[in-house]
Write a protein that binds this DNA or RNA. Structure first.
Lengths: 229, 229
DNA sequence: ATTAACAGTGAACATATGTTTACTGAACGA
DNA sequence: TCGTTCAGTAAACATATGTTCACTGTTAAT
């Protein structure tokens, strides 16, 4: 979408504070999205947010909203996409340092926890709106989560992890893991800061739950395919 | 709280349509709660509900609200309690026909599904507000769910199910099961009626997830207690 | 039979909301 | 350089909200 400048960029194109018009637009769009997330992270659900409220938080006049979204649902869908991107990015980073040595599960969980802290608002949104609020964004969110599950399953297959599982079962497993992940997310994000004990306990619990799940996966035996009687 | 009548009840006390004043009050209170649930089951989050909206749906004038709750949060907490009761009741019924024969998991899931259908709105509320919306009702809801988990763990112990697990691990397991249960709930409740295939698929998936979890529990080995070095 | 209690009413308030309409002025393409 | 585009503004609208207050009429207690 960004226009390509034909005859050489003017000097102040990349200096901070100034920007091309499209960039400015994208910036206020982003601040609208951030405003929504920020309001939600103060303990509100998406459906309870008002248009004026968001523009106020973003520091623009209400009418500006319509230059970017012509609906609250549309903004919601944009948030879903942003959240989905955050999820995928996590996988991408995980792929980089794939060093499966030592206590894999615990290490993964700690990395996840750090990632959670860096993307608080996104995860609050995902965990919070996954089963509540507006049907349209709920469905969109589920699609994103399913995508994530699928990608994760492919990764496990690629790493030759649990090779005895069928693709369907791998998918099942990943779904379970992701649910557990997101539940843990909303628990962890709810702990007031400066309570490392509680947090530690939640993390330990999370680790054990995952262990139990993978133990189940290790001992899983694929049922024989239905005989076409 | 219900007053006890001293000198013999008047004749129309138990006839339908008439009622003592306290009963009437309880009735409109209930219709306020139902109105809230009903609005939520049309795809709204609790925090997005307005006082007037609820009273309108309940068929009373807005001011009547204050005769029952002096806050929306208070109504929310009442809903939490109602939902918690629904959960416990489920366990109580399950305790009655404890016939652990055949495919226990599948049978339990089918019973659960039926119960879901009979308590749609309660489960929508629980699943929807468990990680979204107002912090105060979220916490209250988690307490109820924890109570449920605890009761379930006690039941399993009583039935001598998985006796090799420590109490803590049993609790862990039940937590996992309940999370999976509630996630499945919001999935199942979202299927449009008259789509038995989709529903069947969700149920099958749910069954397999539980199987995997219990498989993990069967093969779980309690780690030796930390040596106080 | 009198009286007090009190669940539900109705009107009014200050404020909030979503949306429309016409406008401003800086960045842009020619 | 000049005219156009268009992100953000400002004022006004109809309508919604939460809360208050004084009231009514039935029910319950004396």
């Amino acid at each position: 979408m960004t226009r390509i400048r034909r005859h050489g960029a003017s000097r102040r194109d990349e200096t901070a504070g100034f920007a091309t018009r499209d960039e400015r637009k994208l910036r206020t769009r982003a601040s609208l999205l951030d405003a929504a997330l920020s309001l939600m992270s103060q303990g509100r659900s998406f459906t309870s947010l008002g248009l004026r409220e968001i523009t106020r938080e973003a520091g623009v006049v209400p009418t500006s909203f319509y230059r970017h979204f012509h609906d609250m649902d549309e903004l919601g869908l944009a948030l879903v996409e942003e959240g989905g991107l955050a999820l995928r990015q996590m996988l991408r980073e995980a792929r980089k340092d794939a060093a499966p040595v030592g206590d894999v599960i615990r290490r993964s969980v700690l990395i996840y926890k750090q990632y959670l802290g860096e993307h608080r608002m996104n995860f609050m949104f995902i965990a919070g709106e996954r089963s509540g609020g507006s049907p349209v964004i709920r469905h969109a969110l589920r699609n994103q989560v399913n995508l994530f599950v699928q990608e994760m399953a492919q990764d496990l297959r690629r790493l030759n992890f649990l090779p005895h599982l069928s693709t369907a079962t791998l998918h099942l497993l990943c779904g379970l893991v992701v649910n557990t992940m997101l539940n843990a997310a909303s628990d962890i994000l709810d702990t007031p800061p400066g309570e490392p004990r509680l947090e530690q306990e939640l993390v330990d619990n999370f680790v054990r739950q995952l262990r139990l799940i993978f133990l189940g996966a290790l001992n899983w035996k694929e049922p024989p395919p239905k005989p076409a009687h």
